[in-house]
Nucleic acid binder design. Sequence first.
DNA 1: GTCTATGCAAACTGTTTGCAATTTA
DNA 2: TAAATTGCAAACAGTTTGCATAGAC
Lengths: 156, 156
Amino acid sequence: MEDSQELSFDIFLKNFKNNVLKIGLKNSIQKDYILKILYFSEEHLTAEEISNKIKQNFNVSIGIATVYRAMKFFHDMKLVNQLDIGDGVIRYELNRLKHHDHLICTSCGIIIEFTDDLIELNQIKIAEKNNFILKEHIMSIYGICENCQDSNSLKK
Amino acid sequence: MEDSQELSFDIFLKNFKNNVLKIGLKNSIQKDYILKILYFSEEHLTAEEISNKIKQNFNVSIGIATVYRAMKFFHDMKLVNQLDIGDGVIRYELNRLKHHDHLICTSCGIIIEFTDDLIELNQIKIAEKNNFILKEHIMSIYGICENCQDSNSLKK
DNA sequence: GTCTATGCAAACTGTTTGCAATTTA
DNA sequence: TAAATTGCAAACAGTTTGCATAGAC
């Protein structure tokens, strides 16, 4: 399992690097590390967290400016999504092509992804009704997650 | 019309000030000005913009820190909504109780409000499915507005 | 060898905080 | 008069930028 994931990452990375070369730019190990972290992470990571994880996992230090520049680059290439949950920090995730939205727990901050076809359909209708050319949407639902509900009734 | 709006604002303001007193806090002209701007503004304003509008309309200078503190206060009182469209600036609007979402033009930045019952229903279902206690949701649809579509085909 | 990407530190932006002065109840 | 609010400036956090150096093609 490990191996097959590693393999699919290798293919993904090779493909990405080819695309970079095609547009006349250069690759770097730093970007490789960042992509690897994003690829194998389930979470939505901040620039800081990405940098820390690279330190932990590969014992390599990457300047925070490099992370930001890489994220902008990936975002322009539609390779990563940016998620702003309104706490002043931007989080990043690999764009796995299937659109999804986010449930955010206002107590512990956990972010749960969900997909909903009705929402996808609805946004098209709303955009049409307002004569917008649709690009994308962000839907974030805020509430209290199961865990936090339980720990609030701890004393029972 | 002007007058009846002025009147309804006066009632709104008097009511607010009473509530402030009830919880043992003090009122100030600064908060009055801010509320008046919010009340008569259709737009979603940043702290900076609120401060500028007060300068323009009433020729009064209010420290930016005061605006931020007031907005936090209003937000805690559920009087104001915060809108973060992901450009690093928080926008504020008076909470007129009917929930609505936002269409944002990525070209000119105009923000159009819309309401959609299906979305309201949907979020309840999604929260339930994930065992969340629902608090609120934010949905922002990004696209190109009618105006910007036209001006792109200017040359014809 | 040329041109891009990196790392560092400084700059910047929006927001928050400490504190003395002012205003409110 | 006691307590809360303001205004200023400094602090702060996250992000961006300029520039010299290292690295990729």
